[in-house]
Amino acid sequence: MKFAIVLNGCSQTYRSQAEEIYGFLKTSFLTEGEGETFVVCENEKQRDEIIRYAPTALLHLIKMDRYQPEAILHFIEHYEGMKEFRYILFPSDFAGQELSVRLGSRLKGSSMVAVEEIDVLEDGVLCSKLVYGNHLRGYFKLDFPPFCISLQKGGKEPCPIPVIKNRQIFNYEQRSDQDSFIQTYLFKRSEKDEGLESAAFVIIGGYGLGSREAALNLQKKASELDAGFGVTRPVAMNGWMNMGKMVGVSGELVKPKLCLVLGASGSAAFMAGIKKSEFIVAVNQDAKAPIMNQCDVAVIDDYVPVMDALTALINTWQSDFETKRTSE
């Protein structure tokens, strides 16, 4: 069953997009040999990395001035072999979401965003995704191919892409004629906070922090304890901490060995961002907050005095631990 993959090679996240798709392929009924990858790239510098990490042997490299959805859609829509693909897969990032829906509309197919799994049906495809603010899972039937599907963020474990021999590469250049509505274009790359995603110990503050000052204090404490620091959406939306620190379904997904959550009620969208944590501790005054039943240990109290006491205990223990190790 032929399928296509569309990736944004203009982004620094290209490799993670590719590995996310590859992880999805490994658990689906689709087989790599029947897939073709379309990648948009800006310059020659990216070429080697794009080829190395493309999830299929057959690769279409589309050179453009920059990532521009109108131009990409125009190219893919008019690619002559497009009708042969029954499935077109996109990663979970913003580009994957926007391209999947718009391409589905243009090709008169069906589309769905944030899909967890797909299953083949006689006359369509069955997709599952989270609905009702991540409280429920919905199963949907899509009827019209091509099925343009973007993946759910964190839905499947990414899978490293092996070295693929005998690659077939087709090169194209696409001029951005569809960009005429854009008068000026300025992209400022921002450094991603890799520490949060990979940290073994993460401290997260919720709306119960109450102020920007409290959020900054907690961030400082987290740094002293060598922990990654994140916040919930309400904290970021209030501007108490920058958006890069936001944990949840529309922010970072963390999977530390130890996750300490302070002053957060535990909305479903937030819990989706920490559910892969090995051990979750929640501190909250409200015993009925949803998080209190979705953690491993719940401390019912104001987070400030609990955190002060806990920090003192950890510091004392760490210094005793260091002294013991030095004397040995």
């Binding site: 982004s11 620094q12 913003f94 509505f181 992209f187 921002s190």
Partner: peptide, 12 residues
Amino acid sequence: QMDDGVLEQVIK
């Protein structure tokens, strides 16, 4: 907001 930065465009 893009995945790896912020994009500012003047558009018609």
